[in-house]
Design a protein around this nucleic acid. Structure first.
Lengths: 115, 115
DNA sequence: CGGTATCCTTCTTGATACTG
DNA sequence: CAGTATCAAGAAGGATACCG
């Protein structure tokens, strides 16, 4: 597999490319919350309590730039914004689920129990 | 899902835990090379030319600490060291393959072609 | 409500050089 | 051959405060 450039960044494998879309600490939790029904900024904050505003903000923008979600803003008072998964993001969900399954396997393997 | 602590580090989901094992830039490429038959430090260097010695060294140690590979050193001249995937790591391979498939899907979607 | 900006710290990665 | 050490640059992440 040859390396390639996308958006001024070099990638050496499809996996690196995939990781740019769903990797890092926050992207998967955000995508999972959106699947579970959260649509608004405040919903996401509640569902992921340990994320800072800055991280939620920057990660949402990155996901939007990568077309993993759409952002629709309504001109109301108080303001309302809705985030939705794109088809591209929905295709990632099975991968994420499998990763989750593997994580649970590892936790059992290492003797990590969660009550 | 409640957060949990393992090895003095806090995790908020099984996915984060899985990512600690196979995430980052280098762990997956290393695991894939070992699957493809590389067993020695030099083999890995050749198969992943853009990795620095420091990164290869530190990532191998981390993977060893996490029991994703075994390191067997032979007292010969010149020295010989062999790395092998553990069962735990082999269980990650389907996840990695699916991630690869998703990466290829994304590349096609974004119009990234590799000759 | 839903951001956005600034500053600062910490973690990750890279370059380089040296060793048993 | 297979590391190991040191230094530095850059990216990622957290704290805090303010805005439309």
């Amino acid at each position: 597999m040859k390396e390639f450039i996308y958006d001024n960044k070099i990638y050496y494998s499809p996996i690196e490319f995939a990781m740019a879309h769903i990797g890092g600490t926050w992207k998967i939790p955000i995508l999972l919350c959106l699947r579970k029904g959260s649509t608004r900024y405040g919903d996401l904050k509640k569902a992921i309590p340990h994320i800072s505003d800055k991280m939620l903000f920057t990660q949402l923008r990155e996901l939007e730039d990568k077309e993993m979600l759409t952002r629709q803003s309504f001109l109301e008072k108080p303001p309302r914004v809705e985030y939705q998964l794109t088809e591209k993001a929905k295709k990632a969900l099975p991968v994420i689920d499998q990763m989750n399954t593997y994580g649970i396997f590892l936790m059992k393997e290492m003797g990590v129990f969660t009550e």
